[in-house]
Amino acid sequence: MDLSFVILVEMLYAIATLVLISAGLAVVFGMMKVINLAHGEFMMMGGYATITAVGLGVNVFVAMLIIAPIVVGLIGLVVERLVIRHLYGRLVDTMLATWGLSLVFIGLATMIFGNTTTGISTPISGFAVGRYQINGYNFFIIVVAIVLVIAMLAVLKGTRLGLIARGTMQRSEMAAALGYSPDRIYMATFFCGSALSGLAGAILAPLVGLVPTSGGAYIAKAFITVIAGGPSLIAGLVSSATSFGVVSQVFTFAISPVIGDVALLIAAVVLLRAMPQGITSRFFRGKL
């Protein structure tokens, strides 16, 4: 009984982590068809922003939930204006340019923070379930992921801004003809996407030791989750995060964490081979 509860929590936690690390990439890819390979580095910078802010005496939750997203969002804004703006519609070129950017950010972080591991302690203490100990922070991550998905749905479905964004996503010429500048909308979208990446990096920062190269650990998983999700933004994100989270946790519990990771990657290859356009090209069609 206790064990099954622990496994359930761990599964939810794995899914929530995947949703968190992929959300920023999914927004940018879903809206602009731009693959941001510097996504992992945006998360890394979110982590560093949090740690720096906490070091300056800011409350940990303020640093994670407010400062990190804003800082990384602004960095994303600069990146969009300087580089990505010139490459819209050239998928492969944006991938290459953002890959270059990721190397630049790694280099900058190494020069500023040094090639050492830094970290902060988790702000929520663990508790016991029967004979097992659960990390209380895991619940926080699950809650944040749920709130995030609901907030994204609410913004996209409920607000006028969301309507404009969805319109641009479907047919940017039409949105432009109706008087909305796609350029501005793309800029705003990229800001939001970067801010989400920063948020994810900040929230995960207490769980991992942060080094300038830690972005590399996220980018592959985020990339796979988003691509496997397919054309629908939120349904794709949640469905592919769920499938990969379950697969990786089952193998983690059955064999070992590394095999869990490998199983996730193999599942991705099989899934893409079976459904080359992603999960939502076959299921949940036309959903958001």
Partner: peptide, 14 residues
């Protein structure tokens, strides 16, 4: 940093 220059080279060339 080495990585920084490699990254810059790639971005500038693209």
């Amino acid at each position: 940093d080495n990585t920084l220059i490699m990254g810059l080279v790639l971005v500038l060339f693209v």
